[in-house]
């Protein structure tokens, strides 16, 4: 396998993880509606990236799934748990932990896009270069969002 194919496999894996992490947070923090809605929206960006990587991977003989990993089974349960716990302060701390996890996962994704972009340049794979130019900024935005929410929500969670 070409080395660049390995990078695609790795990124495909990490984007799927990011989508799943975002969706898990969306379900777990169903009572924090902005987090829940935004995490769902941003998970769709990762779905889109997964699809694009799966498609491009074919050029390298890769057979990658174009579909996101679903978390539907537990989702219903987690939303109910979030509703039951909505009057407790503890989920706010859990939310900080989840945002932190999203941030780290998105940072990994961003680095992987960086590497893939470098590889695409070196191998003159124009299509792949275009793909990284389209997707990498969105990974950075996913990262900035989790950072911003951490910054905004942490003072209340940590001080009261």
């Amino acid at each position: 396998m070409k080395k660049i194919a390995l990078a695609i496999v790795e990124l495909h894996r990490s984007e799927r993880t990011l989508a799943r992490t975002l969706r898990a947070a969306a379900a777990r923090h169903h009572s924090d509606q902005d987090i829940s809605h935004l995490a769902e929206d941003l998970a769709r960006w990762s779905d889109d990236h997964v699809r694009a990587l799966a498609q491009h991977g074919r050029h390298y003989g890769l057979r990658l799934s174009a579909r996101p990993r679903r978390v539907r089974v537990t989702r219903w349960v987690q939303e109910r748990v979030s509703a039951v716990l909505r009057r407790r302060p503890e989920p706010a701390l859990l939310l900080l932990a989840d945002l932190r996890r999203i941030h780290r996962t998105a940072a990994g994704v961003s680095l992987d896009w960086e590497l893939l972009g470098q590889g695409a340049q070196a191998t003159k794979d124009h299509e792949l270069l275009q793909l990284t130019a389209r997707c990498h900024p969105q990974a950075l935005r996913q990262m900035r969002w989790s950072n911003a929410m951490l910054k905004e929500l942490s003072p209340q969670a940590l001080s009261t």
Binding site: S31, D34, R86, R87, P89, A92, K151, E152, Q156
Partner: peptide, 18 residues
């Protein structure tokens, strides 16, 4: 440390009891 808290978030803080 962050933009002043908006109303819906304030109510969320009231909901969780902080």
């Amino acid at each position: 440390y962050a933009p002043p808290t908006h109303c819906m978030q304030m109510l969320r803080y009231a909901e969780e009891g902080t």
